[in-house]
Design a protein around this nucleic acid. Sequence first.
DNA 1: TTGATGTATACTGAATATGGTATACACTGA
DNA 2: TCAGTGTATACCATATTCAGTATACATCAA
Lengths: 111, 111
Amino acid sequence: MDAKKRKALEAAGWKFGDAADFLGMSDEEKQLLDARVEMAIAVRRLREAMNLSQTDLALRLKTSQPRVAKIERAAPDVSFDQLFRAYTAVGGRVVVESKPRRMKFELQGAS
Amino acid sequence: MDAKKRKALEAAGWKFGDAADFLGMSDEEKQLLDARVEMAIAVRRLREAMNLSQTDLALRLKTSQPRVAKIERAAPDVSFDQLFRAYTAVGGRVVVESKPRRMKFELQGAS
DNA sequence: TTGATGTATACTGAATATGGTATACACTGA
DNA sequence: TCAGTGTATACCATATTCAGTATACATCAA
């Protein structure tokens, strides 16, 4: 992990003793963390593309502006479920294919 | 929603007043529920392909066999986060592409 | 500077998810 | 039938996530 990423994660509320701790994360944890961060970034990008404020999105999600702020930095107390809902609420799509079976979390209006 | 799917969901612990209630779900909720169910199915299929018992997987996830049973039916009190960890623990992979930006939740050894 | 708008941080009580345990059920082979 | 293995259901105590609120900070226009 580069310093930049670690700094961003710590800003988001994640705690690391040092880089070795991160390297010691299980593969599952790393994949989950990556997916969370990607989805959070996507939420912000899509929201801004729609010219919605955090307050606007909060209304759609039936939550508060402060929670949207947390969602967009993938804070530790934001579940993947909530990230997912926010993501789809701003136009993110999920495609489930069968052969080969896979799930794609697609961003509309990709960069 | 067909009766079969609804039956499966109810068996998993989800509650529906009637089909209209389900149709009344927001798009986000439907996408999330679908993704959860797909991931749960994937966990079971991959686990069995690896010849692991629920107890074996529970050890890897540092949880209990009963919880794995819940994970595999995408019970309402199982978070997407936990589903995700289980999924990756049995070989599921996440690929994040940049152009176009999308996330794929890929099943290894797909059917 | 002031007010308006958008975003971030901190705190709380309530709701939900989690691990752990006990136990029931299903299937198989001896 | 019985023992062994794998899976499902039920319950509880604890931990985590949540909405709601207050408030701080940032930017911009008048």
